[in-house]
Design a protein around this nucleic acid. Structure first.
Lengths: 266, 266
DNA sequence: GCGAAGACTTGACTCAGATCAAGGCGCTTT
DNA sequence: AAAGCGCCTTGATCTGAGTCAAGTCTTCGC
């Protein structure tokens, strides 16, 4: 269930996706204090460059479940996810859907030099994005190698992630898919609180079963059954519907079938 | 459980890549006359920048079937494919394989800022690559925005292709997968000889059935059966083992299940 | 010319995951 | 309190693609 939504977010317009502009936020949050400052596209920028960015930036919030853009729609901004999670999905005419990206805080949305969105972008949780008007952002990219360099790095990382995902989609069993997904979430959780090394790990699923199914190339029933299966085998424990605790991470990783050849570091 | 490859096949990993250096070629082919000049990483470079690149470049040839690098190996160069086709594949411990990239002339291999290869790179056909020593190339990237810009653009294209492929791997049927693959090859073929618009198209399969299977997330038997099925239904005709002609491209595209909403241009 | 090996095809059978169907649980609404 | 709705689970059945097992056709070395 969506967490408490601030009153500003609740107003609804029936025609357009309900988008609320946060002019206030935009003037309040300076890039220097931004929580994603050191990981986002802007991470390499110096103070001058930030100032230029700040001139073309604005914030937008989307309640959980809301569309950000539809595939094919013109998109006059690019953006960084500040808080929350967004999904990229592709849909076939007959309705089959495949998620092709999961955007976490600091991840980048949109492609400089392209006017139409290539995928459906949806807020999986309540979402705040730091948007840059597209035209000026593109101009800035040309003048600011730091921006382009960082974007290249992030894009290469995404490409690696996409290729990892191709292995999962093409060759892994349903059980391995679920285990892989949980491993990824757990690793991310662990990265945020690095002091904790041993003991059971805990993960909060940010996606519904249906979204997980779309991500993993499965049906919702199979996702449900495999999660039940892992629980029955003692590999995971359910904490409510959306919480999962992992007593033995190595066991889970083993099931995921990941090449673990000493990638302890990195 | 998924099929396991015999130890004998995995053993091959221990041999060294069979690499032939073409010092002669390297001095003969000047960037100005290079056939991939206008599409590769270097396409935006001016004459001065080309000269710097030329100083750190060398050619390598690989016969069909030869490894270029193994995943995890240190890789002290990055490269563009000049002629031929290379594949990027990931392999699980038990031998399951998934192709994650198909590199055609002008495509780029290797990641600046990374020392180990992330995937197995293999020459699918006889292959010539234009290699750049990694260290100096990286240095050049910092000084030469044109290089970084083009690489970003190419990486974004690859990311799009990877995401398209995720839809295929996660949601398409075997028949759709084969049809999609043929469509992609046919479109590429068509792009090379743009004058020809109507009439049956012809495609030469650059991959073995096994490589196609690895690409499509199928088994070799299923690939074979689906190709036979398409032939039986008159959608394609076989010309020898590796040649395919397509009397009605739209019909094939229909079977591929691609969203065709007027992407005639683009 | 002949055997062997590699690439491909085809058939019979199996099974993992999809599909169809029926609930359960925790809410919000009335 | 009841009814309705999302979201999730579980069971029964079906099926598309995998697996196993023969083949054929070509090429290549001797």
């Amino acid at each position: 269930m969506p967490k408490v939504v601030s009153p500003a977010l609740i107003q609804i317009n029936h025609e357009r996706p309900f988008v609320v502009l946060h002019q206030n936020l935009s003037s309040h949050v300076s890039c220097g204090e931004c929580k994603i400052r050191h990981r986002a596209v802007c991470s390499r920028c110096d103070t001058d460059e930030l100032t230029s960015l700040e001139a073309v930036k604005f914030y937008r919030s989307f309640p959980a479940g809301t569309p950000v853009v539809w595939s094919g729609e013109t998109m006059d901004f690019v953006a960084s996810v500040v808080t929350g999670i967004a999904t990229l999905t592709q849909t076939m005419e007959d309705g089959r859907r495949q998620m092709v990206g999961l955007l976490l805080p600091s991840d980048f949305v949109g492609r400089p030099g392209r006017n139409q969105a290539a995928y459906d972008v949806t807020a999986a949780t309540d979402l705040v994005m730091c948007c840059f008007r597209k035209k000026p952002f593109e101009a800035l990219m040309l003048r600011t190698p730091h921006l382009a360099q960082r974007l290249l790095e992030m894009t290469l990382d995404e490409l690696d992630a996409a290729r990892e995902w191709m292995l999962l989609l093409g060759r892994k069993t349903a059980r391995e898919k679920i285990a892989s997904f949980l491993c990824i979430l757990a690793r991310r959780e662990a990265a945020l609180q690095p002091q904790k090394v041993a003991g059971p790990m805990h993960v909060d699923l940010p996606l519904t079963r249906e979204e997980m199914a779309d991500y993993l190339g499965l049906t919702i029933e199979t996702v449900s059954r495999q999660i039940s299966g892992l629980r029955r085998d003692g590999v995971i424990e359910l904490v409510g519907k959306r919480g999962i605790s992992i007593p033995d991470f190595d066991a889970l990783q083993e099931i995921a079938g990941d090449d673990t050849d000493g990638d302890v570091l990195s």
